[in-house]
């Protein structure tokens, strides 16, 4: 079939656009299409959430509530026992916060790396194509969200904000291994003793994060808790990531890989919190 001039030009343009996009993706990972597409994507995701996702989610939640009615009494009993412990926990937390505030005043500190405030948000859309690990939340710059803020669920850290518009933000999950997606962490070895490391990637076969230790002299064992260290400059310290599930010595014997079971349930992300680290040197 002979191609006319316009067909040849169009095919050439398609080829050029695809090649350009592939090269940019390999080189820098940030395509100029990003800023173009995010403008339109905000409107589309609002429309999709209000017309499709929200009605369907409400319907499925309604059915699951009906199905759980038989177990309500047992759930209520468990919750009642947990609530009884809340008052004393709250008093302890308030006392600790008061002591931290006193220490800050004594040391003339305006903030510490564990200071943060949370901005609640609802997950609007999440692509079924999971390799890019993106989801859209309904909090943006108007609510105080900015790029590189950590995002947590009620169970633990899930990712960070990569782009922000006025009322929406796009979050990149930790399950995507990317040079810009590393997190500085610390492993609680014992009271007052921690080991620092870098959370580098997620292993789908092990279903765990891989943490490279910065100092291999520490003895890390299973069930130790892993939290953010705050050393990276973006995330506050103390955000729970998960627990150690396995430790593997590297063949070169100068380091070890620590496999960390995520605390967050990535399949159930309806409501999240954006963590804004407080401190004058964060912006």
């Amino acid at each position: 079939m002979k191609l006319n001039r316009i067909q040849r030009i169009l095919l050439g343009c398609i080829g050029a656009v695809l090649a350009f996009s592939l090269i940019l993706n390999m080189v820098s990972g940030n395509s100029p299409l990003v800023s173009v597409s995010h403008e339109g994507y905000g409107f589309f995701s609002m429309l999709k959430y209000s017309l499709i996702d929200y009605p369907i989610r409400s319907l499925t939640e309604g059915f699951s509530i009906l199905g759980r009615m038989w177990a309500l009494e047992e759930e209520n009993e468990i919750l009642r026992q947990q609530i009884e412990g809340v008052a004393s926990m709250q008093a302890r937390i308030e006392e600790q916060q008061r002591q931290i505030q006193e220490l800050k005043e004594m040391s003339d500190l305006r903030s510490v790396i564990s200071d943060y405030q949370t901005i609640p948000a609802t997950v609007m859309t999440r692509s079924a194509e999971t390799w890019n690990g993106m989801l859209t939340i309904d909090a943006g710059s108007a609510e105080g969200v900015a790029e590189n803020y950590a995002v947590i669920s009620t169970q633990g850290l899930i990712g960070k904000v990569t782009s922000v518009s006025e009322h929406q933000s796009v979050v990149r999950l930790l399950t995507v291994s990317d040079h810009s997606n590393k997190v500085s962490v610390k492993i609680q070895i014992s009271d007052g003793v921690t080991a620092n490391g870098i959370l580098e990637s997620y292993d789908f076969d092990e279903q765990a994060f891989i943490v490279k230790l910065l100092d291999s002299n520490n003895t890390v064992t299973e069930s130790m808790k892993v939290t953010t260290s705050g050393m990276g400059g973006f995330f506050p310290s103390g955000l729970f990531i998960g627990t150690v599930s396995r430790v593997e010595e590297l063949s070169n014997a100068i380091g070890m890989d620590v496999y960390v079971q995520p605390a967050a349930d990535f399949s159930d992300l309806d409501y999240v919190y954006v963590v804004k680290r407080l401190g004058d040197d964060y912006e």
Binding site: N25, L33, S37, Y41, S127, N132, T136
Partner: peptide, 9 residues
Amino acid sequence: FFAMNRSLD
């Protein structure tokens, strides 16, 4: 576009 993909994979 709908998958929020940064490149045209």
